[in-house]
Design a protein around this nucleic acid. Structure first.
Lengths: 264, 264
DNA sequence: CGGCAATTTGAGTAGCGTCAATTATGGTGG
DNA sequence: CCACCATAATTGACGCTACTCAAATTGCCG
């Protein structure tokens, strides 16, 4: 399932040439950049080069219920994190792409809470929990970078909640696509031409709807000229219309325009 | 809105006497325990006692969109984290109680992604981001404790996704109550007698249903003898039945009993 | 080329959201 | 202490959306 590379191997293919030299600001993929640098010989504060693992499409990086021995950072490719519900339904909890952290949610109980499945052939950095604890002391910058990445996971969780909270399923899909577009932009890719790595079922699971409904919504948005859909390749033709669709419609009485004067 | 305490003030009331001496294992509220110890004089690795803030019910600890100057750890009381959607709907993203971390999701962009509102009179520890970065180097244990707490937030996010993903709203409420029960148990309280700190609207928002539906589901579960409901005080009369209700019902064809043989 | 899975489309029904009205609760001031 | 108001919570009725079951089509990999 998981092929282990010697480590500082000059690994080829698999990742597009998007190693943009973004300045030493703070956020986007600083953690990944540092790991890449270390991999290329510039070790920085790291004592040893990071471990690189190759993960074939459909195989898993870690399994729900397994003891947490290490966490991972996506180096290339894409993953879905799923939870098996009691009735056997596979609930998709998040999607992870380059620079995202996998397995951090297992730290609090020492057991992985999700299963991370590769949606395509991918590579990840493996960091043992022991390494993590040590690294954070020796390298404040690395610590900040890791915190930033974990923070991003929390933000994504909140946005996913927003998606699932929408009343109309068309709204949910629109929000999902806007989210995908935003992420593509952050990643330096086109925010208009999206290549979805996950199937309709996975999208449906994330959004909390039936996969037929996802399919129907794609068709509707395409018929209205908002999208051009060809299987997993989606082009956003009319972003304004898509955003309009992403704006939810909740009843007036549930709105929060209710300002309570706080006592002084 | 926010009253600032001198700091190592012997603060009274507000928090129940649940300072159980759980051994130095790893998980549940280690971060909080360390902060409490520091507050009581036993500074440990901290150079100064932690800052304690008092937050009145209905007021906020941090506001969505504001720059992140510090994060907070709930010392007593309860909070909801909300996001304002474009249409003015207030989406509840999570509930936080004692030992939970607030504001960590803002680190990656430097701007708070949620608004944290106190559901009752509460107190929190305030940690400036500067402090956080420094502390983690000087104290590995504190770092681990923080990571554990953040990890728990990710786990909660996944469970919330599970709740929202359920088809039937009765199932969603059942899952929510099981979750509340689990948390109460972790906290050392009774898993049967729950005192919900949030209103029906907030529950409805978290579950992605109308608040009338929440009310109806409470009534149904009460009529079936599963619960005894008196406003925000809920007693679980038949946990087995509640768990049975929490088991979702998805169509067979969407189940994930589909094992693809991975190439070797 | 054949088979399996993914996707799409259709039809019927159940369940939930919306609107609306009533009751309960808690806090404030007279 | 009680009356009063605002908000929260409950219950009812109705329409519409999305889930379910079902079948056809496409796409993909061996």
């Amino acid at each position: 399932m998981i092929a282990l590379l010697p480590s500082p191997v000059a690994d080829v293919g698999c990742d597009p040439p998007i190693d943009s030299p973004s300045p030493s600001l703070t956020c986007p993929g600083e953690l990944l950049q540092r790991l890449r640098a270390a991999e290329s010989g510039r070790l920085g504060e790291l004592s040893v080069p990071p471990l690189v693992l190759r993960v074939a499409m459909g195989s898993v990086v870690h399994l729900e219920g397994a003891r947490v021995s290490s966490i991972h950072v996506v180096r290339s490719g894409a993953f879905k994190c799923v939870r098996m519900l009691e009735d056997g339904y596979e609930q998709v909890v998040s999607f992870a792409e380059r620079a995202d952290v996998l397995g951090f949610d297992g730290l609090c109980r020492g057991v992985h809470q999700t299963t991370a499945v590769a949606l395509e052939d991918s590579t990840v950095y493996g960091l043992s929990v022991h390494e993590v604890n040590g690294l954070l002391q020796t390298s404040p910058e690395l610590a900040r970078a890791l915190h930033s990445a974990v923070s991003r996971a929390l933000v994504d969780a909140a946005r996913i909640a927003d998606m699932m909270a929408a009343v109309a399923s068309e709204t949910r899909l629109a929000r999902f696509l806007v989210w995908c577009s935003d992420r593509a932009l952050e990643r330096g890719e086109s925010p208009r031409r999206l290549h979805l790595r996950m199937g309709r079922r996975d999208i449906a699971s994330l959004l909390g709807v039936a996969h037929e409904t996802v399919s129907r919504c794609f068709s509707l948005l395409a018929r209205d000229g908002v999208l051009q859909v060809e299987n997993r390749d989606v082009e956003i033709l009319d972003r304004a219309a898509l955003v309009a669709n992403s704006r939810g419609t909740r009843r007036n009485s549930d709105l929060a325009i209710r300002h309570r004067a706080a006592a002084a």
